[in-house]
Design a protein around this nucleic acid. Structure first.
Lengths: 340, 340
DNA sequence: CTGAAAGCGCTTACAG
DNA sequence: CTGAAAGCGCTTACAG
């Protein structure tokens, strides 16, 4: 690294003391430094392209303007929009991010938390790829931290999460409103909190409509898994008139299966995806109606909450923010084929 | 942030000087500190859960063990495997990453480079989402930096890139080996260096086989764009017996189009994707043969190069590393239907 | 109005 | 074998 100029270099060139440089460059010169010296400092700083060493600044101020971010992208897929938007928002507030992958392992997470603390990060952002319950390590309880897309079971930490039950309900209601009475419910990981909540929402809506509650079919998470599960469902004699997929890739598989069976969408089959984060569903043929999780808004809120907390005198109260999801109506839902 | 113990705290508790603490904890106590005091220091450090303040350490050592990473994920899609693997490799060497999104704007990039330099990062990693030519700002030339998935036109910087021409050739040869004589070539952004190289590779192979060179069809980058382009191509009277798509999503669209036209893959149509980074093509039905870009290996190499450079006395010579891509044979290529 | 000093938390020569 | 001092690059009281 080619050596950067220091405040001392500027002071020497301008013929003033180091303190004077600091005062002038930080706008606290008024009434302290003569106009002439001020000009000299500014000129010298410009000439040397001086900018302060952030490490030295951090040591002095005890703040690093850095956020520690913990996530655990399984199998190389990470929460892109969540992470990217959080980065943008933090950057707007002049915060940088130190990213860590815990791999979902509590022991690793603990170590990384320590590393981040040694680095003196100002606060922590925990970003869960899928909505889940998060068990925070003790250290996290005594530092500024915000959970994004996960909730702390003990409600000790502020969190920002989507309303997954509401999302499920929205998808079901879109189908019910068109007159569907049966639905095939393809889910990713049945054991995941996210999936359970979405399923609950769908079931609530069907129950409220006085219909039998659809049972989830655990299909897996890949496109071909969705294809197989959908195909099997659609081959049954009393096949459902509609499909809800909790994962976007499952929906892609379902579309493939429908094409295979010459079942037109939405003529012969309606499909709703409960996820559209990868922007797959919206550009399929036909385009799929989805329930959109407001990742960008959630990420912004989470960072705002954390930044506010860092600026505040004392910790604000713990909050659990629930963000509504929105139905994105596209071309995959219609009135079910009469007769059947 | 609950206050962390400092070396002073440890020294006080152990009844020794601050220097003694440093010596013992850094394994340089032998012959310097009595065994008894060593034990006292270690006990005190443990009791107070002491770990050194990395910011103070950085100021003293003039090294931050931090890598500055510049990327420009357009429209929220970033080079996942590249970034994630680079992170893993850096982490294994005890380097952390400060991530920046330049948005593809030179002015922004410049500012972020300055910010990163103020933060005293040890080196820079430039990660291009798509293989491209990169015009490095002047500052970058005088600091440790490695380009990942892009090349410096002036060859002043070490870079790690995939062999895109070879990738195109590989795809074409797989088709030619099965007896195909015609191919529809669906490309994303025709102007992008990445696309141009892939197209060149395909054309080279066809020319070498004494066949007419296929002309690229600029389809766009989304699934439905691929669908439309493929459909149009397949509806022509002298439709090609095979398709090569430079982008994975284009290939998904092609599969949809084929299903629509009741063209079975690979019976009536063979398909190869020149990209499989999103793991879409490999789990389609049928699974698609792809040319795989070795992102993980490339990212590891790039980080290794950078870390070596940071440890070296003087800058090693500039290198341009070209990584071969590999054909991943799956179920979408077969001998063309005879007759037609 | 200005300069010298202290201190953030470390480590490394340097005296004793 | 051990402690006091210097210094990394800053800023903020504190004397003059």
């Amino acid at each position: 690294m080619s050596r950067k100029a220091t405040a001392r270099d500027v002071a020497d060139l301008a013929g003033v003391s180091r303190s004077a440089v600091s005062l002038v460059l930080n706008g606290r010169a008024a009434g302290n430094i003569s106009a002439e010296k001020q000009r000299a400092v500014i000129a010298a700083a410009q000439q040397l392209r001086y900018t302060p060493n952030a490490v030295a600044l951090s040591l002095r101020s005890q703040r690093t303007r850095t956020l520690g971010v913990l996530s655990w992208p399984g199998r190389a897929r990470l929460a892109q929009v969540l992470l990217h938007t959080a980065w943008q928002r933090a950057h707007a507030d002049h915060y940088l991010m130190l990213l860590m992958d815990t791999g979902g392992d509590p022991e690793t997470e603990r170590r990384q938390l320590d590393t981040l603390r040694d680095r003196q990060v100002d606060g922590f952002l925990i970003i869960a790829p899928d909505m889940t319950e998060y068990e925070p390590p003790d250290v996290l309880l005594s530092v500024p931290a915000v959970l994004l897309n996960c909730v702390d079971a003990h409600a000790a930490l502020t969190s920002v999460v989507p309303d997954e039950v509401g999302a499920g309900r929205l998808a079901a209601e879109a189908l019910l409103a068109h007159g569907h009475r049966t639905v095939g419910l393809l889910v990713g990981d049945e054991a995941a909190p996210q999936t359970r909540l979405r399923v609950r929402g769908v079931q609530q809506a069907f129950t409220a409509a006085g219909l039998s509650t659809p049972a989830p079919v655990d299909a897996g998470t890949a496109i071909d898994a969705g294809y197989r599960a959908a195909r099997q469902l659609l081959l049954e004699p009393d096949r459902p008139t509609s499909l809800i997929c909790t994962q976007e890739r499952l929906a892609v598989g379902a579309v493939l299966a429908a094409a295979d069976l010459h079942l037109s969408i939405p003529g012969a089959l309606s499909v709703v995806s409960l996820e559209d984060g990868e922007e797959l569903a919206g550009s399929l043929v036909p385009t799929l109606t989805t329930v959109h999780r407001p990742d960008a808004a959630m990420a912004e809120q989470a960072v705002d909450l954390l930044v506010e907390r860092l600026a505040a005198e004392e910790p604000p109260e713990v909050r659990q923010l629930l963000f509504s999801c929105q139905l994105r109506t596209r071309s995959s839902v219609a009135v079910p084929a009469s007769g059947r």
